[in-house]
Nucleic acid binder design. Structure first.
Length: 554
DNA sequence: TCAATTCCGATGGTAGGTCT
DNA sequence: AGACCTACCATCGGAATTGA
């Protein structure tokens, strides 16, 4: 027998028996493993117990350890003789367990192709193949090939501190992205670096930006100064937006446990039975309780008994009143959600109808404009035809497929009494666009009667005509007596009916000269009097005569 | 010079997915 | 259901740099 403290008495710990650490000299000299709990006092051990490992049951294994090594009947598993030991003592547990203990033959993960380390160990031990595995680890952890080139620790050379400008730019980008995960942070960091490049600021890595932001968020209040720095305040605001985006918020203790709702668990069996009923607690939709930082937990719950909090939370969850109230709240939420959906769909439908009506209005406006343009062209052709005296040309020949308009506000009188047209007026609007109107009789001052005023920049050009200008070669007429709103007053030349023998019917370009067999150029003259100068260039032998007659002034 | 700041690596925890 | 794997995150400490 070896007294405690002797080398023979020293036994390995249970862990050492499996790990293979063997027997080691303990610094305390006792030889007991420090991580073993003994449930009997040392003074109560008899010789038999003190001889053998106190943490091994006396009937542990196949044999009852015996110093003498005497055998027992084979029927007793405890009487199986032990192999010879060099110490002639109870064999070490690690020797016994080496034969008895076998690892489980069926364990999870045996189907995996190759053994891998867990978590970071895998990334450190094994090279990460490209395109698979952890991208994050692949970036941050060097592979064995490049493990020799150890990245220098500490701050990188040339890394500049954050200044207010950098923080403002970072806050702007974070406020736009509201990153919640790593990918979002990468995107935000890309934008920030792009912004930094444009503004001549140093770029930072994603982790640096994230660390800086979270460092600002968790900045504690300085004692003695109640003013929160603006950048920290803005960081808090952005962090709040992130929480809202994630559909979570911090919960105070009052939100978690309401003392008035807590129930008391007694030893009554009926109460216990009620409590033990399985309750499927529905997951709350919003808000989700978000775990506060560890330091917040430590500071807020320091004085609170954790078990009591847990018990209070459980009892609160299982409270029938609380459950009923929760169900009612869920019902109300569901009803409100349904109403919101209904209103949203109605709003969307109304917007769609409004868009359709707007499109129809625009289409009708376009059609109206096109019709007016066609009507103007038709009227112009009609007037030109009539003034040529070509009565043989019918209207439908001039405008095939276009029916004459009847009842138009602006042109009804023109159509009904085309010969009453006294002059033609072209209106060029300041905002673009142009309109042509034929005015005669009492219709010429229609705008004044209706109170219409020309907008600034609007220009009116009026071509005057007289009823007695039937096919007259003289193109010059006096300005109409009714009004002359434009400094340029031009009367179109009366079409010239060429003789049957070969005059060409060319027309000059522009609105200053129209004619058959000659070109007419009208030049306005404002000094000394308002008038025009008309130059006619005939294409025939009448040129001299026509030029002489046409040159006139009023 | 030194406090503040930044970066990096290490460590541990958590949650979700996969596999047995 | 449980073990394992993986990604992600928080935290800490050391080292280097920055700027007052």
């Amino acid at each position: 027998m070896n007294p405690p403290g002797s080398p023979q008495f020293q036994l390995p710990s249970f862990r050492d028996g499996f790990v293979g650490g063997g027997m080691q000299q303990r610094p305390n000299g006792s030889g007991y493993a420090p991580d073993i709990q003994y449930d009997f006092p040392a003074h109560s051990m008899d010789t038999h117990q003190r001889t053998h490992a106190p943490h091994v049951p006396h009937n542990f294994g196949h044999a009852q350890p015996n110093a003498s090594g005497s055998s027992f009947p084979a029927a007793e598993p405890t009487c199986i003789p032990l192999p010879d030991d060099e110490n002639d003592d109870f064999p070490s547990p690690h020797l016994l367990l080496g034969r008895m203990a076998r690892p489980a033959s069926k364990v999870a993960g045996v189907r995996r192709s190759e053994p891998k380390g867990k978590g970071k160990q895998k990334a450190i031990d094994l090279p990460v193949p490209s395109g698979s595995g952890s991208q994050k680890r692949k970036l941050s952890t060097p592979t064995p090939q490049c493990a020799d080139v150890k990245k220098p620790r500490g701050r990188a050379t040339g890394a500049a501190n954050y200044v207010s400008e950098d923080l403002d730019g970072l806050f702007d980008i974070l406020e736009e992205h509201l990153p919640l995960g790593g990918k979002a942070w990468n995107s935000a960091a890309d934008d920030y670096n792009q912004w930094a490049e444009e503004n001549g600021r140093p770029a930072h890595t994603t982790k640096s930006l994230e660390l800086k932001f979270k460092q600002l968020v968790k900045t504690s209040k300085p004692t003695g100064n109640a003013e929160c720095p603006p950048h920290i305040q803005r960081a808090h605001e952005i962090e709040m937006l992130m929480s809202e985006k994630a559909g979570s918020r911090d919960l105070d203790d009052e939100d978690i446990v309401d003392a008035s709702d807590a129930i008391i668990i007694t030893s009554n069996e009926e109460d216990v039975k009620q409590v033990n009923v399985k309750v499927k607690v529905e997951k709350p939709r919003v808000p989700i309780a978000r775990r506060p930082p560890a330091d917040c937990i430590a500071t807020q719950n320091t004085a609170r008994n954790t078990s009591q909090d847990l018990l209070a939370t459980i009892t609160n969850v299982l409270d029938p009143d609380t459950r009923r109230a929760r169900n009612e709240e869920h019902s109300v939420n569901a009803l409100q959600t349904g109403q919101i959906f209904t209103l949203t769909s109605q709003l969307r439908e109304a917007q769609r109808v409004a868009d359709d009506l707007r499109n129809q209005l625009m289409e009708a406006d376009r059609q109206r404009n096109a019709s007016e343009r066609r009507a103007d062209r038709a009227e112009l052709l009609e007037m030109m035809t009539e003034r040529r005296g070509a009565q043989v040309v019918s209207r439908k020949d001039l405008s095939p497929g276009f029916a004459p308009r009847v009842g138009s506000r602006r042109h009804s009188k023109v159509h009904s009494q085309p010969r009453k047209c006294l002059y033609r007026q072209e209106i060029t609007y300041a905002g673009g666009g142009k309109s042509v109107r034929w005015i005669g009789g009492s219709d010429d001052n229609q705008d004044e009667v209706q109170g219409f005023k020309d907008s600034p920049g609007t220009r009116r050009i009026t071509y005057y005509d007289d009823d007695d200008s039937d096919n007259s070669v003289d193109p010059i007429r006096k300005p109409h007596r009714h009004r002359d709103v434009s400094p340029l007053t031009i009367q179109p030349p009366t079409p010239y009916n060429p003789p049957a023998s070969g005059f060409d019917n060319s027309q000059s370009s522009g609105n200053l000269a129209v004619g058959g067999g000659f070109d007419a150029v009208v030049t306005p003259q404002l000094q000394p009097r308002v008038g025009i100068s008309l130059t006619v260039s005939p294409h025939c032998h009448y040129a001299d005569d026509l030029t002489t007659r046409a040159r006139a002034e009023d």
